[in-house]
Design a binder for these strands. Structure first.
Lengths: 188, 188
DNA sequence: TGCGCCATGTAACATGTTACATGATTAT
DNA sequence: ATAATCATGTAACATGTTACATGGCGCA
C-alpha cells in the first residue's frame, strides 16, 4: 500500500488537489509509480477518512471548485514511519520476457522484430529520462540535498534502462546467429 | 491479461494441474511473472469457460484427485497470436525509489541503511539467478533453440539486477559524501 | 506429535484500469 | 470550430493478495 505514501510525500511538499497530484505524478515519478485520476480520488477519500489529510475547499469563479488536500500531523507521522521501512525489491511483470520464453514457436525474424520493437521503446524512455533530468519535474527541491536525492532516483532509471537496452541489442545478435525453425509456424 | 498467456505457454509445453503450474511458475519465471494459487485456480476456470483449455480428471488413491489441464486448439491459436504481439515495457512499482525521493527527511545514516538493505536483497536475487541458470528450472527444453531462449531470459534478469546493484553501491557512496541534515528528524 | 507435501477451492479485500459523466475557459 | 486545460467524480471490471477451509500421507 504505497500510493498513499507517495501522495503523502507530495502533500508534505505542498498542499495539492487531486488534479495537481495527478500532474505531479506524471511529470516526476511516473516511471516508478503511476496512478490515474480515479485511483487518486479514491485514495484521497480513504486518506481523509483515516485523517491522514484534511481538505480545504477553494471557490473559483469560471472554473470548478478545488479541493486542496493538506497533510495532517498523523499523515506526517505515517510518512516518516514509512520512509524508514526496509525496502522491497520491485515486483516485476515482464510480458516481453514471457514472450521470449515461449518464442521457440516463432521464426528468428519474428523474434528479432519483437526485440527491435522493445529496443525502440527503451530508447524513447531513455530520452524521457534525459528530459526529466534537465527539467526536474517538480518546481524546486526544498534543499540541495533533496535535489541530489532526486537526481539519484532518475539515475537509477537511466542505468537500468541502459542495461536493458544493452541486453536487447546483444539478444538481437544472438537470435540472428541461431538456427532458424524449420516448421513454418511463422507469421505473415 | 497475461497470466492467461503464461499459463498457455506452460500447458503447451505439457499438460499440468493447477498445483503443478504453481510449482513451475515458482521454479522458472517467478522473477518475471508470479501468481499465487488462488489466482491460478481462478484463471484456469475462466480459461476453461473460454475453451482455451480442457480438463482431464485423474483419480489417485490416498492423494486428492488431480485436474490436469490440456491446451485446446483455440488455446494454441491464442498463444501463437499473443507471442507475436508488440512488446510493452514492463510497468514498474518501485517503493524504494519513492522512499529515496522523499528521503530528505532522513539522516544520511538512515538512507545508507536503506540502500545497504536493498543491496543485500539484490545480491540474494543475483544468487537465485545463478542457481536458476545451472538448474534450468523446467525439466528440459524441447529444442536447443528453446534452451538458448531460456538462457537469454535469465540473462536479462542478471544484467538488470547487476546494473541496479552498481547503482546502489554508487548511491551509498554519494550519500556518504552529502552534507547531513541538521534538524533531528532521524531515527533511534 | 507436528510439519511439509499433495491438491483443491472460496471469500474478502486491495489495487489498478477503462469507460461514463459534466461543463466552463482558453488557446489554435 | 475544436481541442486542450481545469476539476471532480462514479461504476464496472480486471488483477492480485490474504486468510479461511479440508484432509490424508510420509517423515523426523
Amino acid at each position: 500500500m504505497s500510493l498513499k505514501h507517495a501522495i503523502l510525500g507530495f502533500l508534505d511538499f505542498k498542499p495539492l488537489s487531486g488534479y495537481d497530484l495527478k500532474k505531479l505524478f506524471d511529470s516526476s515519478v511516473r516511471f516508478y509509480w503511476s496512478a490515474n485520476h480515479s485511483q487518486i480520488y479514491r485514495t484521497l477519500n480513504e486518506m481523509k477518512r483515516d485523517e491522514l489529510v484534511s481538505i480545504e475547499v477553494i471557490q473559483q469563479d469560471g472554473l470548478p471548485n478545488k479541493k486542496v488536500y493538506h497533510i495532517t500531523e498523523k499523515g506526517t507521522d505515517e510518512l516518516l514511519k514509512w520512509l524508514r521501512h526496509s525496502p522491497e525489491l520491485p515486483p516485476i511483470r515482464h510480458k516481453m520476457l514471457i514472450q521470449i520464453f515461449w518464442a521457440d514457436h516463432l521464426s528468428n525474424e519474428d523474434i528479432v522484430e519483437i526485440l527491435k520493437d522493445y529496443a525502440g521503446r527503451l530508447e524513447e524512455r531513455l530520452e524521457a529520462f534525459e528530459v526529466l533530468k534537465k527539467e526536474g519535474g517538480l518546481e524546486h527541491p526544498r534543499t540541495d540535498r533533496e535535489g541530489l536525492l532526486w537526481e539519484m532516483v532518475i539515475d537509477n532509471g537511466v542505468e537500468i534502462t541502459a542495461a536493458d537496452l544493452r541486453w536487447t541489442l546483444k539478444a538481437i545478435e544472438k537470435v540472428g546467429s541461431m538456427e532458424n525453425i524449420s516448421t513454418s509456424t511463422s507469421s505473415r
